[in-house]
């Protein structure tokens, strides 16, 4: 069963249209009040009307928090992943906890961050970083350790120094892994910022949603969700584009994603 290249995007598009039609039609037909479920047109209208005054400024605040958190997670995660791959002692000191942290709901400590760091930028950045950190550190670690044994033997037979092995083999080999981890992290970045906003903030999309919920302005809630999903997806798409060009530059025309 051969698929033409267009068939899949077309059928996905068809399903999206179907969902939109059902949403729009269902709301109109069943006469659902907008405070319960606003129609798509109502949502889009709100997203546009409230854009300049409310949604765009709030989105920029949330995006700023998410990006700083992502940056912090990347710097710390890549550094720690590389150090743990290089040192057995560091690996054994930290990796068990990093793996175990997966079994602990990190979001639950968001309130603690508010107590520690107040209502400013810091707790949001840290909450985002805590969520984004895991996939980055794990993938960096795996990438640095992905060198095959025989390549290690080849380097030994060439009397390569540690620095040569790291720079010429391990780091380039880790790049696709780091991107894979980063892509996982990007999806959670906006969520992390939002959670910290929820627990304590005055600016950002979190408070916008809380206020809208309080006054049953559900169309505004939906519009804010639209902005959040748009931010997450564009971050993901941008990462994928950067990844593709970096991998192409590094690995030639054929991508070798890990």
């Amino acid at each position: 069963m051969k698929w033409s290249r267009l068939e899949q995007p077309l059928s996905t598009g068809a399903i999206v249209l179907l969902v939109i039609a059902a949403w729009e039609g269902g709301v109109a037909w069943l006469d659902i009040p907008p405070y319960l479920v606003p129609s798509l047109s109502e949502t889009v209208k709100t997203a546009i009307v409230e854009a300049d005054e409310v949604l765009i400024p709030a989105s920029l605040i949330t995006l700023n928090e998410a990006l700083w958190g992502l940056a912090a997670a990347t710097v710390v995660g890549v550094t720690l992943g590389m150090l743990a791959a290089e040192s057995k002692t560091l690996e054994r000191a930290f990796m068990p906890y990093i793996v175990a942290s997966q079994a602990v709901p990190m979001l639950a400590i968001a309130p603690l961050l508010i107590i520690w760091f107040g209502f400013g930028l810091a707790p949001k950045v840290i909450a985002t970083a805590l969520i984004c950190f895991f996939p980055i550190v794990i993938n960096t670690f795996a990438g640095m350790r992905s060198m095959e044994r025989d390549i290690g033997h080849l380097m030994t037979s060439l009397q390569a120094t540690r620095a040569q092995v790291i720079l010429k083999i391990q780091v380039p080999a880790a790049v696709p892994f780091i991107f894979a981890g980063f892509k996982n992290a990007v999806v959670f970045a906006v969520i992390g910022a939002l959670v910290a906003e929820w627990v304590g903030a005055t600016g950002g999309l979190g408070p916008v949603i809380i206020r809208a919920l309080g006054s049953f302005e559900t169309p505004l809630v939906f519009a804010a969700i639209l902005y959040i999903v748009a931010m997450s997806i564009s971050l993901f798409v941008m990462t994928t584009l950067v990844e593709r060009s970096v991998i192409r530059w590094l690995y030639g025309a054929t991508s070798q994603s890990a």
Partner: peptide, 21 residues
């Protein structure tokens, strides 16, 4: 003690690095 400096080694697998030309 360091025989490596006399020998060039080649393995069954090419071990070419995929990111290098």
């Amino acid at each position: 003690s360091d025989r490596r400096s006399f020998c060039a080694y080649m393995f069954q697998r090419d071990l070419l690095l995929p990111w290098r030309t």
